[in-house]
Design a protein around this nucleic acid. Structure first.
Lengths: 238, 238
DNA sequence: CGCGATTTTGAAAGATCTCAACATCTGTGG
DNA sequence: CCACAGATGTTGAGATCTTTCAAAATCGCG
């Protein structure tokens, strides 16, 4: 069921195949298969042998690690065009879970690794994606290690806002959160109660409004930015 | 002052040049230069244009990020053979500071980038190093987000112990900490007082002994492992 | 030996978590 | 179309952990 041809793919220009020429694309086209997962479904378990690598075509997935006693921490959030799995790794290092409904474009690992050996375009793009993830992970480390609960929540909302703006310039400040309070807590290194309290504190102060379970509207973006604790000049110069 | 020839280099087999053949090595040999930094010296400042990339030949360096009000968090620890800087990036994303005395093997970024384009061996190794850093960053996220102060300290000591054992099999459990309490605190997302208290708590329990400022001896490795909060089977089978 | 830097220790404040009850949402079946 | 049930989210109060502020002790270098 390869409904979508690579040239029509929504992530054609950002995924691991971004730089591929027509020949390379044909080769990928022949080895790919789509697979859909429901929200909440586990895509890969930690320790499982790695049989496929994949690009996220649609939806949001998370990577998480768990301590002996069950405490868990998300260590990555995968959005469309992000890549799952590493050539050269035999096992999955963490649980990969579909946060929303997710569609993957999968490749069997053997032929994909061969492709990476053959085509610098793919290897290069894979490198860029890995470095982007590393940057994101490091920002996250600062958040996890040093930010207060309030700053964590503000940063999280700000991140959603920026992504929304980037994707679709005419934004009215309304956002949809792709996660439950519990998932947000696991993302931010908090408990779900604290997440709830901080959301409602920002609401009480008039920085945001909440409606339904997943709708947020940003009322005062400056106040929100201020609450993140980050340097104020986050690249927003004219 | 290129005292050391690549073939005699202590990190020859692990650094970015690990897979290079003789021709490639000659090319690197011609573009490299060594530079030494004192403990505490800043190697690169955040936001600085990236003019060199480098391998750590000797010593320990750290990457850190800082919040508006001065709170700082280390986001990486660089040991010999680790690589500083990314082809494709224009700026340094964080402060790089020499934790101990450090010797770098530096390459100017332009010719190095050209080399990466030309030689899959270097690109491939760079990719592996980046993925290793990503794994380390993710383990650190779990620590920062979910571990208690006690678990953080135990994990830190265990990490030192494992590195010591890996480097030098006949180990007697005596370790030298490469950092001050303050630096350890910045690494673990704690305050220096909490670091001190947790070290002394482990000492009081007979898990470790402390002598001088930087000497630790691990008395009860099992108890230490137990205190890390990690899965007990950390790859120590057979 | 003495001084500055680092580390330890104490006490109190503050933040987040835990446990528990209650409220609200969503979608399913009558 | 409504009512209901389970899942999700909110709120409260107290416990716990870590930080903060302050002072004293120790280390190691000159």
């Amino acid at each position: 069921m390869n409904a979508v041809r690579c040239n029509d793919c929504p992530i054609r220009h950002r995924a691991v195949c971004a730089r591929c020429d027509d020949d390379e694309l044909t080769r990928l086209e022949n080895m790919k298969s789509y697979k859909r997962y429901d929200a909440g479904e586990t895509i890969m378990w930690r320790g499982e042998p790695l049989e496929h690598v994949a690009s996220i075509v649609d939806g949001v997935a998370s990577l998480s690690k768990t301590l002996e006693d069950g405490r868990t921490q998300m260590v990555g959030l995968l959005l469309p065009s992000d890549f799952i799995g590493r050539p050269g790794r035999k096992e999955v290092e963490f649980d990969v879970v579909a946060t929303t409904e997710v569609t993957l474009c999968r490749f069997e690992i053997k032929p994909f690794e061969q492709l990476v050996m053959d085509t610098p375009h793919v290897a290069q793009r894979l490198m860029e994606l890995a470095l982007d993830e590393l940057d994101a992970a490091r920002d996250w480390m600062l958040l996890l290690g040093r930010k207060t609960a309030r700053e964590k929540i503000a940063t999280f909302i700000d991140m959603l806002a920026q992504r929304k703006i980037a994707g679709n310039p005419e934004s009215d400040g309304t956002l949809e959160m792709p996660m439950t309070r519990d998932q947000i807590a696991n993302y931010l290194g908090l408990t779900l109660e604290t997440v709830s309290r901080q959301f409602n504190a920002l609401k009480k102060e008039g920085v945001i409004t909440l409606s339904g379970r997943k709708q947020i509207e940003v009322i005062d973006l400056l106040a929100l930015r201020d609450a993140t604790g980050d340097d104020s000049d986050g690249g927003v110069l004219s």
